[in-house]
Amino acid sequence: MARGIDFTDSAAAVARIAREFDDWAPELTALITDSDTAPVLRPLNTLPIGHQWDRVQGVTLLGDAAHLSAPNGEGANLAMCDGAELGKAIAAHPDDCEAALTEYEQALFPRSAAAATEGAHLHELLFGDNTPHSLVNMLTGHEQTQ
């Protein structure tokens, strides 16, 4: 949606964004058109689904550094899980840090890929080309499987 919008011209940006929602209720489009704040483009950055790295001695990643993905409400949960899993791996291998880090990463990669896949799916439902129909279809049980 942001392609082709000049965010340096606030009035034009507001008008262009509001046009995306022409068939929506005026009470909702007013959230765009009646704001005192200029629109700001805030890109979402993600790592590729299935992102992995080669083992680096004594170093690993957790949280968004390990699996930055589209927001799906699970970011803090994943970071907490990463910390707990890393702690368990270190406790299981108190004299072998490399074994602990390897064990942690082997479990991290599939968990991260699953969460990133869910995040990408949710992002498509909420912001994809078929929005809002894709979200309505999902909520009413009519979501098409791909």
Rank of each mutant, 00 (worst) to 15 (best):
L44H: 09
P43F: 03
S35K: 01
D96A: 09
A11P: 01
G4K: 13
E20R: 08
E124H: 11
T140L: 10
A92T: 13
L31D: 01
T140V: 13
A76C: 15
E98D: 13
F109D: 14
G4S: 02
A115C: 09
L86T: 06
G87C: 13
S10Q: 05
R19G: 00
R19S: 02
A25S: 07
R16G: 00
T33S: 09
P48R: 13
A116K: 12
G128V: 05
T29P: 11
F127Y: 15
P48G: 03
H67F: 10
A120T: 14
G75T: 13
L47G: 09
S69M: 14
A66Q: 11
A66T: 12
Q57D: 10
D23T: 07
Q146D: 14
G73F: 00
S112Y: 11
A120R: 07
L122A: 01
A2K: 08
H67V: 10
A13E: 01
D54S: 07
T60N: 06
A65R: 10
A13M: 01
Q52C: 05
G87P: 14
V14E: 03
H67E: 11
W53C: 04
L41A: 13
V136S: 04
W53D: 03
Q146I: 01
H142A: 06
E74A: 14
P39A: 09
A76G: 15
L68H: 04
L68Q: 13
H51C: 06
A70I: 03
Q52W: 00
L101Y: 11
S10Y: 00
T145R: 07
V56S: 07
A30I: 02
P43Y: 00
T29Q: 06
P94M: 09
K88Y: 12
M1V: 09
H93N: 12
A120P: 09
Q146W: 03
T131Q: 06
T8Q: 02
L41T: 05
V14L: 05
H142S: 08
M138P: 04
P110M: 04
Q57M: 08
Y104A: 05
I5A: 00
A76M: 15
T131G: 01
P71L: 14
N137R: 10
A100P: 06
N77A: 14
